[in-house]
Design a protein around this nucleic acid. Structure first.
Lengths: 125, 125
DNA sequence: TATTGTTATACTCTATAACTATA
DNA sequence: TATAGTTATAGAGTATAACAATA
């Protein structure tokens, strides 16, 4: 289990580095498939809101994401990927071959088994 | 798969924080069950040797690890845990309940299945 | 000449505290 | 008064380059 997680993490880091992203930047970018508020991102990444501010600012400077005013609450902002961000994220996922290559070693049945077992592990976490 | 790794990583970070260790420090400490050279550790953690120097220096300052001269090569040093390091590592592993709690949700047969599937995923990585 | 490990240093990531503006 | 997000800033982690000792 440790070896598996270690390999996964390492593959993720390498894919991020390949696109000049930090792990946290790649992670935020990956979560913007649907738009999100800053504090929502902070909670999902288990980090402080001020950290998200900086990450989003850098993504925005690279034109990968955009802040937009929330229609419901004028304090809050909705973050979404730009088309460039979508493109880079897609490239990142392609580079991040780990899951793909790993899955290719298992039959469809085995993949389903694995997903079911991992799902059970995560129950009520 | 992503959710699983995310939960694992988060649990590891929390367990490390609980004992005033960074993730990297906990990771080095965990690998010292058998003694190792500096460059060996650097390779295992996918990081620079100068980084390991600092980590080991901090572990040594906390009396959790010790540098020892290598009998074979006077340039190199062997690092090993002190008894205090053994004790802290054992406490860390106890705190790091993730694997334990997760495994408890599966039967012995299912655990074997999972280990076999994960093993297959890692083949020739 | 190459290798092991260290030092000095700069850069990045992250968190804390104080702040603005809304609610 | 509480909340969303920002700013300024300090701390920790990591890497690069130059170096010492040894092979």
């Amino acid at each position: 289990m440790f070896a598996f997680v270690d390999a996964y993490n390492h593959a993720y880091e390498e894919a991020a580095r390949l696109h000049n992203l930090s792990v946290a930047h790649a992670c935020v970018l990956g979560r913007l498939s649907t738009q999100r508020g800053m504090s929502e991102l902070a909670e999902e990444l288990h980090c402080d809101a001020s950290n998200i501010t900086q990450i989003v600012t850098r993504l925005e400077a690279r034109s990968l994401a955009q802040r937009q005013p929330s229609p419901d609450d004028r304090r809050s902002r909705l973050i979404r990927r730009t088309p460039a961000g979508d493109a880079l994220n897609a490239m990142f996922e392609q580079s991040f071959e780990f899951a793909r290559a790993a899955a290719a070693r298992l039959s469809a049945d085995e993949q389903n088994q694995l997903a079911a077992l991992l799902g059970r592990l995560l129950a009520d976490q």
